[in-house]
Amino acid sequence: MTGEAFKGFGSKAIPFLKALDFHQSREWFLENRDLFEKELRDPLGDLVDTLTQRFAEAGLGLRGDRKKSLFRINRDVRFAKDKRPYNRHLSAILSPDGTKMEQGVFFVHIGLDRCFAGVAWWQPAPELLTAMRKAIASHPDTFRAVVAALRKNGLELDAEGGMKRTPRGFEEVADKDLVAAIRNRHFAVRHAIDPAGIHGPELVEELVDFTLRAKPLLDWGRAIEGKTAKD
């Protein structure tokens, strides 16, 4: 299927995920693959293509590809205790170079438990994460301005998954807000999507608006990443 403007996920998108989660069967999935493609996969590809165009127009520096940007519905169960073969969600990522290997990305997740979008520097490589922590410690006013801008835009940095102890080299940082930030393993903001709102083209405007509101985080991380690449 060639790319089209996003019109919304199919009315049976969530019911399909519920049925797939119930059956967890390759035979059932193959029998219903056409429904999966029509209701979920192809619309998500259209969403990636449409957002790529809209993000370019907005100067956000994020793009994707309807084939390469989508994550598989199949689970990798090689080293997992949970051997169910299929995910309860479908997701995609848009990044600076259009691959899944970059940092400073946009992420969209359509699932049974929740639907959401995120903008994140998610578990960046040690060198970049250390540079981010050093930037927080050495330029606290800049970091606090980013946090304030995000809050003004209705967004909060994700506080989950932080280290219990301050990493080595940052013991002298005393301010509680900076300590909490330095203990982060990632820097991300999220936007909850109403599952009832995934079936129309209005979702595009909602996601563009969210990503524009998250731009202070993207700009902060990119500035640090740029300096790290030059060193």
Rank of each mutant, 00 (worst) to 15 (best):
G3Q: 02
E4Q: 04
A5H: 06
F6Y: 04
F6Q: 06
G8S: 04
F9N: 13
G10M: 09
G10C: 11
S11Y: 01
S11R: 14
S11T: 07
P15Y: 03
L17Q: 07
K18P: 00
A19T: 04
A19I: 00
F22H: 09
H23E: 15
H23A: 12
S25Y: 10
R26L: 06
W28R: 06
E31W: 09
R33Y: 13
D34I: 13
L35H: 12
E37P: 08
L47Q: 10
L51R: 12
L51V: 11
R54C: 07
F55Y: 15
E57I: 04
A58G: 03
R63T: 11
D65W: 10
R66V: 03
K68Q: 06
K68C: 00
K68Y: 07
F71E: 09
R72W: 03
D76H: 04
V77E: 10
A80I: 01
A80H: 08
K83V: 11
R84Y: 01
R84S: 13
S91M: 10
I93G: 02
D97T: 15
M101N: 09
E102F: 00
E102C: 02
E102W: 00
V108Y: 05
H109Y: 14
H109K: 01
H109V: 03
H109G: 03
I110Y: 00
L112P: 10
F116W: 06
F116L: 11
F116S: 08
G118L: 07
W122H: 06
Q123N: 01
A131D: 14
R133A: 13
A137P: 11
A137R: 14
S138C: 08
S138G: 04
T142W: 05
V146P: 06
A149E: 15
G154K: 11
L157G: 04
D158A: 09
D158P: 05
G162L: 03
K164T: 14
A174C: 08
A174E: 15
D175N: 12
K176L: 12
K176Y: 07
D177G: 04
L178Y: 13
L178I: 13
V179F: 09
V179R: 12
A180N: 11
N184M: 14
F187P: 01
V189P: 05
V189F: 03
R190E: 05
A192E: 14
I193D: 00
A196W: 00
G197L: 11
G197D: 13
G197H: 12
G197P: 10
P201K: 13
L203F: 09
E206K: 04
L207F: 04
A214D: 08
A214I: 05
K215A: 15
D219F: 02
R222S: 07
I224N: 04
I224Q: 05
I224L: 07
K227G: 02
A229S: 02
